[in-house]
């Protein structure tokens, strides 16, 4: 099949950036979307042009590296699918596709379709962990965890931090990502001692990064490749509000 691509090209963070039109020919339906871009890049290099930079690594939908907008949808039209797992059989010959990077103040464009998602790491640094030093853990079966609770925590822990939720959100909010991590740990007995501190510091870290405010549009849930539910956002809000009203916050970390 032959496709027309309009791809966001931006040389560096400081560069203006613009959409550039490319024609890709001879794409088979069995190729993945990223393999289609590989083909485009091979053609560009042969023509002496710079290939399109895009992020990718495992190409199995689990590392969370890949992702960009395809015709206004994060990771493209197929639900519960990262762009590396999206195959060309879901497109038609002659399709016109617009590819853009995630757009958010907190995700500055690095180059072309590559953005900097360091904000997510900083949110985790603020409290997305259980403070248990190596070697200090008790016997694993000492604390039974109801299966339903453990499964629920897993549903939240499945987040791959790709950033699609932020990209699709009309507010550019990071509630789905943050709440997934808050909920994963706050649901489990192991996460209880730091539960309210975690909710407080992670919400505040998230807001400090410059993400927008959640208006409960649920766009994030619609595009999340791992199908993470916005129920976790409600859970995070509850823990946060409870923390604000009752909990004694811990002193800030030493610098």
């Amino acid at each position: 099949m032959n496709l027309t691509l309009h791809v966001w090209r931006q040389k560096s963070p400081a560069d203006e950036g613009r959409m550039v039109r490319y024609e890709v020919t001879g794409v088979t339906e069995h190729a993945s979307f990223l393999e289609m871009l590989d083909i485009l890049n091979e053609q560009l290099i042969q023509k002496g042009e710079e290939p399109v930079a895009f992020e990718h690594d495992c190409r199995e939908g689990i590392c969370g590296s890949c992702g960009f907008m395809i015709n206004g949808e994060a990771h493209g039209p197929l639900p519960h699918t990262t762009v590396c797992q999206l195959h060309m059989r879901h497109f038609k010959d002659g399709d016109v596709l617009h590819l853009e990077p995630w757009r958010s103040k907190a995700f500055p464009v690095v180059k072309d379709l590559v953005v900097d998602r360091g904000a997510f790491d900083r949110i985790i640094q603020s409290g997305g962990f259980v403070s248990v030093a190596t070697g200090s853990a008790p016997e694993a079966n000492l604390i039974p965890v109801p299966k339903a609770l453990s499964d629920r925590a897993f549903d939240a822990a499945a987040c791959i931090a790709c950033g699609a939720c932020v990209a699709q959100c009309p507010n550019s909010a990071a509630q789905l990502f943050t709440s997934a991590k808050v909920s994963h740990l706050n649901l489990l007995p192991q996460g209880q001692p730091e539960r309210y501190d975690r909710a407080l510091s992670m919400v505040e870290a998230m807001e400090k990064e410059g993400f927008g405010a959640c208006s409960n549009y649920a766009e994030c849930e619609a595009v999340c490749p791992k199908g993470i539910s916005i129920d976790f956002i409600a859970k995070m809000n509850r823990d946060y509000l409870k923390a604000k009203s009752t909990a004694v916050p811990k002193p800030p970390l030493e610098a």
């Binding site: 309009h6 966001w8 617009h98 757009r103 103040k105 909010a173 766009e219």
Partner: peptide, 21 residues
């Protein structure tokens, strides 16, 4: 919160995002 959200995406999409909800 509207202002906050507008500030959170200073340069918008060229191709308007699809809305699912």
């Amino acid at each position: 919160v509207t202002r906050l959200s507008q500030a959170a995406r200073p340069s918008g999409y060229v191709n308007q995002p699809k809305r699912h909800t």
